[in-house]
């Protein structure tokens, strides 16, 4: 018997295009966790993240006719969320300046191993990173952007993006090791 695969996502998007609120709600529920977590890791503040998520879904649903289906709906929506998050950070007057002259030691990055740590801790550790390093780490490591793309989005050089990423990774490891030692100490 021939199996017919129906892409539920496309059907929901088509229905949402026609103004079907149930389809919109299903898309919303499907993508909310990923979008919200992406956003909050970028902007940190809960209220800001909620505002950005609302704004992003509103612009996605009200401009859904403009979605051409070149990428998946999720990819399209994530781009909106990331753009809105970056705009929000920019409005907070955080400047992404070039830092080519700053030397960051990344010699131990390849061999430095970490214990298996709950994702909740990593999520919160990322949120505690400094703004610029956090944004670059999110975009590169979690959202799969290339340093070339990050440089374009943030208006910095590619080497600055790399430097910020190395810095973010180093800081993150330090935070995680501290957390681990703290837990270890508590459990002893």
């Amino acid at each position: 018997m021939e199996t017919v695969t129906i892409d539920i996502n496309n059907i929901l998007v088509e229905k949402a295009c026609q103004g079907d609120q149930k389809a919109m709600f299903r898309l919303y529920r499907m993508y909310l966790p990923a979008m919200y977590n992406t956003c909050i890791r970028m902007v940190v503040n809960k209220n800001d993240a909620e505002d950005i998520i609302q704004e992003s879904f509103i612009s996605a649903f009200s401009g859904i006719e403009g979605f051409r289906g070149e990428a998946s709906f999720g990819t399209w929506l994530k781009r909106i969320v990331i753009n809105n998050s970056i705009n929000h950070i920019r409005n907070k007057k955080i400047k992404f300046v070039d830092m080519d002259t700053i030397q960051i030691d990344d010699t131990d990055s390849e061999d430095d191993d970490l214990p298996d740590i709950p994702m909740e801790v990593i999520h919160n550790s990322i949120k505690s990173l400094p703004d610029k390093a956090r944004v670059v780490l999110n975009l590169y490591l979690l959202e799969g952007y290339l340093h070339r793309e990050i440089a374009l989005i943030l208006g910095i050089s590619e080497s600055t993006s790399r430097s910020q990423y190395i810095r973010a990774k180093k800081l993150l490891k330090e935070i995680l090791i501290r957390e681990y030692d703290h837990i270890k100490g508590e459990s002893c």
Partner: peptide
């Protein structure tokens, strides 16, 4: 597994 936080779904909707 990194997406651990849950927003107020109903309020946002």
């Amino acid at each position: 597994a990194l997406d651990v936080e849950k927003p107020d779904e109903k309020y946002l909707w």
